[in-house]
Design a protein around this nucleic acid. Sequence first.
DNA 1: AAATATACATAAGTTTCTAATGTATGCAAA
DNA 2: TTTGCATACATTAGAAACTTATGTATATTT
Lengths: 99, 99
Amino acid sequence: MNMLKEHGRMYGYEITQKVKELTDGKIQITEGALYPTLHSLEKSGELDVEKEYFGKRLRKYYKLTPQGQTTVAQKVDEFSDFIVTMKALLDLGPKLSNG
Amino acid sequence: MNMLKEHGRMYGYEITQKVKELTDGKIQITEGALYPTLHSLEKSGELDVEKEYFGKRLRKYYKLTPQGQTTVAQKVDEFSDFIVTMKALLDLGPKLSNG
DNA sequence: AAATATACATAAGTTTCTAATGTATGCAAA
DNA sequence: TTTGCATACATTAGAAACTTATGTATATTT
């Protein structure tokens, strides 16, 4: 969801490629993980979808709803907290102080 | 496993309490998650166990084997890398630079 | 022409977690 | 004194979330 926050609207395949690019291939989002998640987020009102054809190929562009924007902000905050907690728990201060 | 690296030998229940304490209750390790993991790590040679009685209550003290120490160092490094990657991906630099 | 990339989707199987349940001892409060 | 909470182990059913494989179809590169 953070991808959509940063890049506006994106379609599924685009998300997999962008994440791969931004993480130097370290994180690969598989279709089996992504598509069901997108469908689920759409169903729960976090995402809106717009179907468009690029040539003859269908693209489903997803964007955050207002509710989705709130959720992303929340999730990112939770993840930040988690990192802080884990840094303390694993004593990662030295290694990550400027990583 | 990092708990054992920091604190020498520990028994299961002690690990749950220590993690809870160090994370201000934010991370709760449940027994259903912990005990099978400890058994599995023992079986695969990462941990050694020593059974002792504290009064009439059994405690199973676990400690890292040499192999286990290598593995912990590796896993912690991997997790550090993951955090760095996620910070870049989620643009968490500002929020966590001194968090 | 064949292989690779783009673009969607689902399904089987695995892993891994939570929640629930079980056994038993130790201790403190009602 | 007995009731409840903490200590200490363990297993299991069910849920969640993932990977791998498979399927359909178009576009591009070799």
